[in-house]
């Protein structure tokens, strides 16, 4: 690809990377540390635990696999939404972003069923160290998905008002996409860690 022309026409000395992109990548770096700590704790507590249930026995793996498909699909649709926004196709953008939000919502609904079935069987976070980690990590991930839904809905609402032609709009769609892909990457690691290995 061509060398990066300074995307930012600003009178100030800068790195050629727009402020928003620097900020979102730094924020993702801190999120990497946050989830990295949860994974370290998971590995440490698992190796130190006397016994660790197999994912297949205690958790509903097919449902989780479906959930993974949903999240990957939503990653694809949000990157399409960014492509459509760049191509100035508002209808395409709204469709794709709507799909992303819908699939994220479906992901949470599936999560709700999973949690309620666990509670029904009397498995609470306090039941054992496995459930503690399961509920904490998936819960924190779920909160990040809620954040993503709010961000994407905000963008759609802003696009309908005067945001569509704002010079920052396409950038902000890209940053929402980066955040969403990161949440997907966290699930890509969380899914095998809790359910499969």
């Amino acid at each position: 690809m061509s060398a990066h022309a300074p995307a930012v026409q600003s009178p100030y000395e800068n790195t050629g990377v727009p402020d928003g992109k620097l900020a979102i990548w730094l924020f993702l770096a801190s999120e990497v540390m946050l989830f990295g700590t949860l994974f370290t704790s998971y590995i440490v507590l698992r190796t130190a635990a006397a016994s660790w249930p197999r994912g297949w026995d205690v958790l509903n793996v097919p449902l989780a696999t479906f959930n993974t498909f949903i999240l990957i699909a939503s990653s694809v649709t949000i990157v399409m939404a960014h492509a459509k926004a760049a191509a100035r196709d508002k209808k395409g953008f709204m469709l794709n972003m709507g799909l992303t939000v819908l699939m994220a919502f479906v992901f949470l609904v599936v999560k709700y069923f999973e949690y309620s079935s666990k509670f029904a069987h009397g498995h609470y976070p306090s039941t054992s160290i496995f459930y503690g980690i399961y509920f904490t990590t998936t819960g924190l991930h779920g909160i990040h998905i809620l954040g993503g839904i709010a961000w994407n809905l905000g963008l759609m609402w802003w696009a309908n008002r005067d945001g569509w032609d704002d010079r920052l709009f396409i950038g902000r769609v890209e940053y929402a996409g980066l955040y969403w892909h990161f949440v997907d990457v966290v699930w890509i690691f969380l899914f095998p860690a809790l359910y499969l290995l």
Partner: peptide, 20 residues
């Protein structure tokens, strides 16, 4: 962020009696 994650774990220990 690592302290934030560790605080969340400790909060779960205190409030929901998980035993991290």
């Amino acid at each position: 962020p690592p302290l934030e994650a560790a605080s969340i774990l400790q909060l779960m220990d205190r409030v929901f009696h998980t035993s991290f």
